[in-house]
Write a protein that binds this DNA or RNA. Structure first.
Lengths: 112, 112
DNA sequence: GCACTAAGTTGATATTCATCTAAACAGCGA
DNA sequence: TCGCTGTTTAGATGAATATCAACTTAGTGC
């Protein structure tokens, strides 16, 4: 509640990261380092509900396997999860990881 | 000042990104997607002052040119800037870009 | 079982990227 | 000017990655 970001970690503006945390954080940032994946993440995160892959694919000009590949990267980064229900597969966001990155990058207000 | 992150943009959890913003955001995330660069960023951001390259390099097990390359990537992403003064080059953080990413990823508190 | 649809996996290819060595550039002091 | 140190640039190489076509897997309904 202090400044922002629910303090689940020490922001990089406050203390330098140790090697292990940097490696872990970089892996998650890498998952968001592709325009398609960042849009995928934003579509899933902003949906407010599970999203069917069949509703996602038409937004992009790439093939189905490519979307599938990018969704897998997001999943392996811990940013989303999914479940098959019948013919369709639904994705939803895992806010913890996303919030963690946000906290890492948060810039404390200057103490003036 | 409401929930967090100084509201300089609409978080991805609130609305899906358009293609141009996703491309721009992904480029900045890519700059942070390498463990060395993320540590570099955290060292510079947490220093509270300009940091000399000569004080940065010893923290890493890679060659000088590699550090220089990574610093350039951070600079081209708009996350840091630098200036040569005499023999040494000093780097400092540009908090705006960092804060922008933090805001993008911020997860609004559930309205309970 | 068979046909059909949705999604993921495999394998191949072209591009990008991290790293190094060698060289160049910038500044300082003798 | 010459040598020395700190930093960046250039070029080369091996690894990682984004993408697609072809195929496989999972599920539905006839």
């Amino acid at each position: 509640m202090s400044k922002q970001a629910a303090g689940c970690c020490t922001p990089i503006s406050v203390a330098a990261l140790d090697e292990a945390t940097a490696t872990e954080g970089a892996a998650v940032f890498k998952a968001l380092s592709d325009p398609i994946r960042l849009r995928l993440m934003s579509i899933i995160a902003s949906a407010g509900a599970e999203v069917c892959v069949c509703d996602i694919t038409p937004h992009f000009n790439v093939s189905g396997p490519t979307i599938s590949h990018h969704l897998r990267v997001l999943r392996e980064a811990g940013l989303v999860d999914c479940e098959r229900r019948g013919t369709w597969v639904y994705y939803w966001p895992l806010p913890d990881r996303q919030q963690w990155l946000s906290s890492l990058l948060s810039v404390p207000a200057p103490t003036h």
